[in-house]
Amino acid sequence: QKLAAAVNPAYALMEKKTSYKDATTYNNFYEFGTDKADPAMTAGSLKPRPWSISIEGEIKKPMTLDLDSLLKLAPLEERIYRLRCVEGWSMVIPWVGYSLSQLIKKVEPNSNARFVEFITLEDKKQMPGLRSPVLEWPYVEGLRLDEAMHPLALLTFGMYGEVLPNQNGAPVRIVLPWKYGFKSAKSIVKIRFTKEQPRTAWNIAAPSEYGFYSNVNPEVNHPRWSQASERRIGEDGLLSRKRKTLMFNGYSDVAALYAGMDLKKFF
């Protein structure tokens, strides 16, 4: 199903796009199984419509928005972003959506709001992976409010000019290209504004391995593997060397958000 959007030239990365097939059959979405081939096979049970997001917490205008209202909230843009997985591989994907800041402005955070929490659907009938206790369900992710307001943070409804396939987080997800992929919560049903830093799924599971920030950083290794390089899916085959990973995945604009912070400590 097509999803029309004009390319935003400010965010149209000039790199070879990952094939649609690779981007939709090689996914980490534990709600549909832990193997990367699982989501494409099992996510058919997800019903992306009707859908709504409830927005609550430290805001002046709590509301529940259905998918059509969300789609109409701001003009849809196509943006081509790098996606860097914490496992050491990367893709280049054309997403369709608009800056998350547009939604945040609409609900008017109050002076207590310092963080934003994203909560993924938790429905055993639609998500077979929830039966295994690999993570604490529902999947929860979070950002500092200023990170969420950064124009790069994309509220996303589609990819490759079409609505999101279920296995990629239909019908609505976020995309944060300067952070490891798991920070970008999928199939979001609730957005909550909070005073305290939210607990996040992977941080709960293994706090020494996955920090709250999880910015792409070649100098801070995962305890089990190096983050200095990555393999671009579809390009870096068997006989090519891995490429160097860039600080903030190459999105140096965001550096100002972390001025003065020790990123080895706040990894």
Partner: peptide, 11 residues
């Protein structure tokens, strides 16, 4: 076991 522990997948 340790390899899989990175992604919490112990089955």
């Amino acid at each position: 076991f340790w390899m899989k522990a990175g992604k919490h997948d112990f089955a």
